[in-house]
Each structure stands twice: as structure tokens, then as C-alpha cells.
Design a protein around this nucleic acid. Structure first.
Length: 510
RNA sequence: GGCCGGAUACCCAAGCGGUCCAAGGGGACGGAUUGCAAAUCCGUUAUUCGCGGGUUCGAAUCCCGCUCCGGCCUCCA
């Protein structure tokens, strides 16, 4: 029984074999910090988190690094090598306007004239969101900041890497002073994405800025360093003051943080499917070009994109939902996490509010199961066979639907959960990470994130008064009156449950 | 054009040659419970797996063809 995982590099499902078990080195391309992350971003980060948790469940010790990109990249990438306003600059302007309009969350004291502060603002927001969703690395980073590095702290390593690539004949300084990677010096270029240099050459026509092309030896040559004394964020370098190419950071950080010493390659590398080409292709070229190794990462993991209500979402279209949007609408962290991980990572998931409601029912049932079990006096041992079924499914390229099926079948078959059943569910949840999340975001959490609930707070005193009236009406067997009160509560968005222990109420979810 | 996926009930979705007259979740319907509800519990809900051929004792699962759908191919997780 061992994990078999799809590897983009070989386009097949193959046994996952780290170089030095039980250690696993895992690098994830993380978010850019020019805006709040959307749920599509989180779907892919959570897929990586699920993989990491399952590896740990399987006995591995995982060192997981996820970067947060804070080097200002260009908005206008018609020219892949830069052009248009800087994304950080755009973010800065947006925050400046928010500040003027007074819509920045209370307690935020930010100097939007400082680009690093802008990046830090969104990086902090990302970390807060990621912790709400149970992304393990976002908690670990509090103990070890190196686990979530930022490129602006790795400029020296990027420059060194560029120098090494020039020295080894994989990069050149063009007539415009820009340092380019020479793809023709690296025959493996295209291996990951299935492209060939010929295809790239013919496909490049019309999409690439002509003036820029003239400087390069091949249309697919990509920038490593661009001297530009006018750029928002710039650093001195042997090639003049400027900024690094946007693929360079991951090579520099992954090699520095994970591939040192006895391990010249890393075991696992993840990123959204859009990263396969060109980003990861270029990372491989840079890293292998510099190290001389055949591999940079031996196993590549690429979750597919998330759709929302059947529509493709994208940052540039601005059609995205953030975690904060969902929390504001009254949805809870546990169900949001499960909803984002419950579709197989290599399928396009379609986020729908109907699906989220389905998932809320499932998490509520799990929670009731664990709470009843933990309150139980029964010492009856748990039926561990569910662990085997769960692991068998997960071993099959993270077959999450099969694993959830095993869990639900097991839960459905237990008449009255014991303490051992509850403990077993908690153990499986160590992989899923759902029950460890709160069911509802409480007021303190919402305030910490600067989220304003959409729903008006209901007047609890008024509810209690109505419930008292209803109790009296029911005692008098005046059911018309009692039902009228229930309708009135429903109109306020309050649902009630009568039980032998009395009546409880809750605010209806959207 | 190149590369890569997908098509299973009302919806989501597992299944990788026999143990499948096909898991699991949601929904719907019937019942228990309730003053009535809600919640909960029990039961029912695909002789069939996009279409057509083929291989095989045996196919949702393998092969061929067809029809649809989606993703990536220098913004994006």
C-alpha cells in the first residue's frame, strides 16, 4: 500500500518515491500578493495541503515550502518580458483609494506609498485566510519563516543563479542589456509541457512584441534579469539596476531552501495547471541548467482550475470569489474547506452555492458523529477497516471521492458512536482537515479579517421574547398563534428546532 | 494547429476486466418521530454506464471509429 500519484512530467500515474524517505521535500508555487486570494487560488493550495497531509498520514516527514510572490510583475504581459504598469503599483493605487474612501478595514495602518508594505498587507491577508482554511504551512511559518519565503528576500540568490547560468552557457546578455535564458542550450526544454521549440517558435508569431523578439536568439528565450532604472521595485546587479525575471524566484528559493547538500533535486513541486507552461518549464530549465542535474523536481503536481457556477474565473476578469466573500455570506470554514477539496484535483471543480450547501450537511453530520462519540460512555473499539478503505482510495492518485465515500459509509453504519469512533474520525480528519476547522466563523474571526457579515445581526432579545410567547401559546395549545410566531421568526431569518430539551434557534444560512 | 483531460441516475460523483442487476453525498418520494414543522432515523430512487463496432467465457472498465464537452499553448492557482 503506497501512494501512486500522477506526475505531469511523465504524464502517468506512478509510485511516489522520495529520494530520502521518510523525508519529503515539497515546493509549492504560492500566491502573488497584489490582491486578496480567491477561492480558485485556495483550491490549488488546498490540494497541495491535502497531498502533504496524506503524505504525513502515510508516515512521511514533509518539509513544505510555499512562496509568496511580492516582486512587482507587469500587468501587460502581451510582452512576456514586461510592459504596462506594475501589478504592485496597481494594487498600491487601489489601496490608496480605499484609504481615501475609508473602506480599509479598521485597524489597518498602511503606508500605500511603500510597495513592500502593499505586498505585506496582502501577504498577511493571505496568511490569515490560509489559516482559516487550515493550510498547514501557513501555521508552521509562524515557527519557521523560511517556509514561506518572499522573492524580495532572495534577490542575491537570483543574481547568483543568473551568473551561474551565464557561466555555464545557458544565458546571455542581449543587445538591449537584458539577460535571457538560451532555450536552445537546453534540449530538455518542453519536456514538462509537451511543447517543442519548433512549436513554440511557430506559435509565437503575432503574440510577441517584435522589437523585443529581435533581441533574442529564439522566441522562447525568457528573461532572467531586466535592467530598468524606472521600475517600481529594483535592485543593483552586475547588469545594472533592475529586476529579476518572473520564473527565477522559484528556482532560487527551491534550490536554496530544499535542495541543498546531499539532495540536489526536490521530491515534489506543485502549482496551478496554468503554471505548467511557461513557468515550470522555465524553472526546470533554470534549475537544471544551473545544477547540471537531470531533474529539478522529480514529481510534478498540478491541480486543475476551479470554476464558479459553471463560469471560468480569472483574476484579470475580476470574476472571483474570495474566502472573505463566503464568510460574509455566512458560510463556515469547515464546509468551505471540504467543498474546495472534495473534487479530484485533476478535474476542473465547479464551485456552486448548492454544492456548498450539500457539503454543509455532510460536515454537520460528521461533527454530530464526533461530538456524540466524544460524549459517549462506550468503550467499544472502532472498526478500523475504514482506515484501509480510506487509504486505498487516497493511494490511488488522491481519490478523495472514494475516500469520502468510505468515511460516509462507515459513519452511516455506526449506530451509536463510541469514544474510539470519534478518535478514529479525528485521525482521518487529520488528512481532510475539516472538523478541525470551526463550523462557523465567529464574530472575533470575522472582525480579525475585516469581514462584515452580509446578514443583519438578528436581535437575540427579540427572538427570545418571541420564543417565550410561542412556548406560552403552545402550552395553551394555541397552535395557530405558535405557528404564526414561527413564521415571524422565519421572516427574520431565524430557524427553530423543538426538542425534548426545549427550543433552540439559529440564523438561517444563505 | 499542437498537447492533455472528460462523457456514469434529477445534481455532484466513485468505479481501472468477474465479488457491479454500479460506492458515497445532495435532492425527491414513502414511513417513524412531531400538535404541525425543523432536525434525526428507516426505506425507495441507474437491468445500466455518450453513440457504433470489436477483443474476451465475461467490459462502465481493454481496442478501433464517431459525436459532444473542457483545459493549456508566454495575465492567471
Amino acid at each position: 500500500m503506497a501512494l501512486r500519484l500522477y506526475n505531469t512530467l511523465t504524464r502517468s500515474i506512478e509510485p511516489f518515491r522520495p529520494a530520502h524517505p521518510p523525508r519529503v521535500t515539497f515546493y509549492s508555487c504560492g500566491p502573488t500578493v497584489y490582491d486578496f486570494a480567491h477561492i480558485g487560488n485556495f483550491r490549488s493550495f488546498l490540494a497541495a495541503d491535502l497531498l502533504r497531509r496524506y503524505l504525513e498520514f502515510s508516515g512521511y516527514s514533509v518539509r513544505h515550502v510555499m512562496n509568496m510572490t511580492d516582486v512587482g510583475h507587469m500587468v501587460d504581459d502581451e510582452a512576456a518580458d514586461g510592459g504596462g504598469p506594475d501589478k504592485l503599483e496597481v494594487a498600491r493605487q487601489r489601496l490608496l483609494e480605499s484609504k481615501k474612501a475609508g473602506t480599509l478595514p479598521a485597524g489597518v495602518d498602511l503606508d500605500p506609498s511603500d510597495p513592500l508594505a502593499v505586498g505585506s498587507y496582502y501577504a498577511d491577508a493571505f496568511l490569515a485566510d490560509a489559516r482559516v482554511l487550515g493550510l498547514k504551512v501557513a501555521s508552521e511559518v509562524q515557527r519557521d519563516p523560511r517556509l514561506m519565503p518572499r522573492p524580495t528576500q532572495y534577490i542575491a540568490q537570483m543574481i547568483a543563479l543568473t551568473q551561474r547560468l551565464i557561466a555555464r552557457g545557458h544565458a546571455y546578455v542581449a543587445a538591449d542589456g537584458v539577460v535571457y535564458f538560451d532555450v536552445q542550450s537546453f534540449p530538455e526544454y518542453g519536456r514538462l509541457s509537451g511543447n517543442t521549440l519548433e512549436q513554440l517558435r511557430s506559435g509565437a508569431g503575432g503574440r510577441i512584441d517584435e522589437a523585443n523578439q529581435a533581441m533574442k536568439k529564439h522566441p522562447a528565450d525568457f528573461m532572467l534579469w531586466k535592467p530598468d532604472p524606472t521600475h517600481l521595485m529594483r535592485w543593483p546587479s552586475p547588469w545594472g539596476e533592475g529586476y529579476p525575471g518572473w520564473h527565477l524566484e522559484c528556482s532560487a528559493m527551491a534550490l536554496d531552501l530544499l535542495a541543498g547538500g546531499d539532495q540536489p533535486t526536490i521530491d515534489l513541486h506543485s502549482g496551478g495547471e496554468d503554471n505548467i507552461f511557461p513557468h515550470h518549464e522555465c524553472e526546470i530549465a533554470q534549475s537544471c541548467g544551473a545544477t547540471g542535474q537531470r531533474f529539478f523536481a522529480r514529481h510534478w503536481f498540478h491541480p486543475r482550475h476551479l470554476f464558479v457556477e459553471g463560469e471560468k474565473m480569472s483574476k484579470s476578469k475580476g470574476t472571483f470569489l474570495t474566502l472573505r466573500d463566503l464568510l460574509a455570506a455566512g458560510h463556515g470554514p469547515a464546509a468551505i474547506r471540504l467543498e474546495l477539496i472534495k473534487t479530484h484535483y485533476r478535474s476542473n471543480a465547479n464551485f456552486t452555492f448548492q454544492g456548498l450547501r450539500d457539503t454543509e450537511r455532510m460536515t454537520a453530520r460528521w461533527r454530530a458523529f464526533v461530538e456524540r462519540g466524544e460524549a459517549s460512555a462506550s468503550d467499544r473499539p472502532a472498526d478500523e477497516s475504514v482506515v484501509g478503505e480510506f487509504a486505498e482510495a487516497m493511494d490511488n492518485d488522491l481519490n478523495i471521492a472514494g475516500a469520502l465515500g468510505a468515511v460516509n459509509k462507515w459513519i452511516g453504519g455506526v449506530e451509536e458512536p463510541s469514544r474510539a469512533d470519534a478518535a478514529l474520525m479525528r485521525r482521518l480528519d487529520g488528512v481532510l482537515g475539516v472538523l478541525e476547522r470551526p463550523e462557523q466563523a465567529d464574530a472575533a474571526l470575522l472582525a480579525a479579517l475585516g469581514v462584515t457579515p452580509q446578514r443583519q445581526e438578528v436581535d437575540a432579545a427579540r427572538v427570545e421574547q418571541l420564543l417565550t410567547d410561542r412556548r406560552a401559546a403552545r402550552a395553551a395549545r394555541d397552535f395557530r398563534r405558535a405557528d404564526a410566531i414561527r413564521d415571524e421568526l422565519a421572516a427574520m431569518g431565524v430557524e427553530i428546532k423543538d426538542s425534548a430539551q426545549g427550543t433552540t434557534w439559529s440564523v438561517r444560512r444563505p
